[in-house]
Amino acid sequence: MTGAAEGLPISGYASLWGVADLNRDVLVRGAFAASLARSGAAGVRMLHQHEGRAVVGVWDELTEDEQGLLVRGRILDWSAEARFAGALARAGAMDGLSIGFRPVRARRAGALRVLVEVDLWEVSLVTFPMLPGARFRPAVPVPPAEATSAFA
């Protein structure tokens, strides 16, 4: 079991630019910029299945890059729910990410809602993400001996 201060490191994409989710929402690059400038990673909660009482870790970094919203954080072991989420992640039984937000500026493009600016509240670890490509993986470091032997 990981210590509460360390946690299980995870990283992935919580959103991808220009890709419609199952609800027909599409985010454009820069949609999170104002929200992240106001709150930073510390202002965005890591929840399990969008459950407000189930804070399961912390986000250390949220960055908009060329692909989407890249997130890095740690699942902690401070509650039964957090330990459960960590066990699911380690086993590969849960790897989805989903965002909780308030739309600030949006426009319609046919059947799509194009989100130009959103106020990001939380990024949840979920079983079934609304955006199928929004996934995370535990960041498990490879020991140096194993890393070099693969290329020998």
Rank of each mutant, 00 (worst) to 15 (best):
S11E: 14
H48F: 13
S124N: 06
V114P: 03
A4V: 09
R83E: 10
V116S: 04
V58T: 08
Y13F: 11
D77L: 00
P143V: 04
I10C: 03
A80C: 02
G73V: 02
I10V: 15
W121V: 11
T2L: 03
Q49L: 07
G52V: 13
W121Y: 13
Q49N: 11
A93C: 13
R83F: 01
T127N: 08
V140C: 03
A34E: 14
I99C: 15
R135L: 14
V142L: 13
V55I: 09
A109M: 11
W17P: 03
M46Y: 07
R45A: 15
M46Q: 12
G110A: 05
T63V: 15
M94Y: 09
A106H: 09
G30T: 12
A89W: 09
G110F: 12
M46D: 11
R38N: 04
D25H: 02
A82E: 00
L115P: 04
E61G: 01
V58N: 09
R135D: 00
P143W: 07
M130T: 14
A4P: 05
E122S: 10
A111Q: 14
V116D: 15
A31K: 00
T127F: 10
L97F: 06
A106P: 02
A111V: 15
G3I: 06
A145H: 14
A33E: 15
F136E: 06
L88I: 08
F32V: 12
G96E: 09
D119F: 00
S15F: 08
S124T: 10
